[in-house]
Amino acid sequence: MRAFALITVLMVGGLLFYGLPDFPDWGDPASPASTHLSPFYIEQGAADTHAPNVVTAVLAYYRGYDTMFEAAVIFSAGLACFFLLRTFRQKSIETRLYRHLPTGVTLRIEEGGKTPEGSDEFEPIDSHWVPYDMIINLTCRLIVPFVQLFALYVIAHGHYSPGGGFQGGVLFGAAIILYAISTDLRTAFKRLQEKAVMLLSALGVLIYAGTGVVCLVLGGNFLDYSFLAGILGVDAVMARSHGILIIEIGVGLAVMAVMVMLYYNLSSAGRHDEGL
């Protein structure tokens, strides 16, 4: 079986290498992409989409299909991580620690003992404890809101500065991961539940594809934002600009949720009981 896989890989690789010489040279100024496509983007980008940053215009408008499937790939990566790692069976831990909330007494329950699971008065404590650290905790409390705000700024200013949905989503996810690191996984769950994360990641891709479908319903091509002008109440160029912003928000949501999902599943080996 392994030999078969090896032969397949070698054959596909050989085919790809066989096709390689037919491509134009890397950075060749005479290639069709450089003579026809790039000048069009550079000349028309700002006039078409009102976005000074031509990369954003190419990424989110001219090649919107690619970006949509990139977002879908990220979403499916999150799904794959969920299906591979998430387990709902409790691991048998030898000893467990619980804290009785009204009194602060810590209980140590040996293997086979009855655990106060599901009671409001008891709070589970990590068996491989997260060390409480005042300095890290306070620093994270101070900077998490600003990192979140910076992430939203990056998403909202994709037209003018380097940035956009992917970068802003990563920063927003990193802020939530920072919060989970500075406290512990269960405290992070109180702010952003697993179900909410799953929902947001799907919602992000839905916003992107849904924008395309709305354009389709209004009589244009898929992801041709100029037909959103009637709904948004602006002219065609500004409609393209706002359309780019809408799909950036979708991408940002999807990336943020998938980052957090990966962290939740990887740090606790899919059990969601205790993390880093």
Binding site: I136, F150, V154, P162, Q167, L171, A174, I177, L178
Partner: peptide
């Protein structure tokens, strides 16, 4: 903007 994002991610990476 890139530098600020880099500083943030560097800090989070070291902490994690």
């Amino acid at each position: 903007d890139i530098a600020l994002a880099y500083a943030t991610l560097n800090f989070i990476a070291v902490l994690a």
